[in-house]
Amino acid sequence: MSTSRDFILSVEGLTVSFDGFKAVNDLSLYLEHNEIRVIIGPNGAGKTTVLDLICGKTRATDGAIRFKGQELTRMKEHQIVRSGVGRKFQNPSIYDDLTVFENLEVSYPRGRSVMGALAFRRDQQVLDAVHEVAETIFLADQLDCRADLLSHGQKQWLEIGMLLIQKPDLLMLDEPVAGMSVAERKKTAELLKVITRNHTVLVIEHDMQFVGDIADRVTVMHQGQVLSEGSLAHVKADPKVVEVYLGH
């Protein structure tokens, strides 16, 4: 076994139990730098819970999560974010009452303390960062638009943009193309390809076409455990995976 220093993220023996039900059971997962890993699996396999555990939303019962040499399981959520983990939620969670510009500005990683936020100034650096990200997420023309007026797809992009502006080392996306039109899906795949040039990305996705488009490696989860891991072709051919997906 290689040391965790070779990996940006190494999850070992991760277990979480809700009143005895083990949503994630002794799961291990290793991510290399700039890798795009997709987690797939049937409903209830524990995919979202894994992301929740990594970003601190749910506390692990047992196991270790090491990220860039830091142990995340005992850190607070905002500390985990500050160490470089960005998380996108399944339903677009953006600030409806703020404009696109303000959504991105609030996410800009400066002035994160109370006093820092009071003293925060909208300087050129911030403007540049916001405009650059807005360009990337196809929302450069909607900067002054209230976020709740965006389409579903645009909201998803906005949330991805809110993560990008934080320049995280690890980006976790929970079903980024769910509910999107075909055109939006294609654009999102493009977006992810741009993003992944300099980020490590962990994605949960159901859309197999989309998975094939973006994934370096695929992890198949079932009942809280890793069922199979490898290239998409590899896991598709795995008889255990076929059985889980096609029934008994």
Partner: peptide, 28 residues
Amino acid sequence: GSKLGRILVAMRDQEDRVRFSGYDVASF
């Protein structure tokens, strides 16, 4: 009018998103 004001509104809309943007929501 400061960024803190916008964070307050953001917290009202999506508390978790603020938390997972690196803010200690409780201190605000």
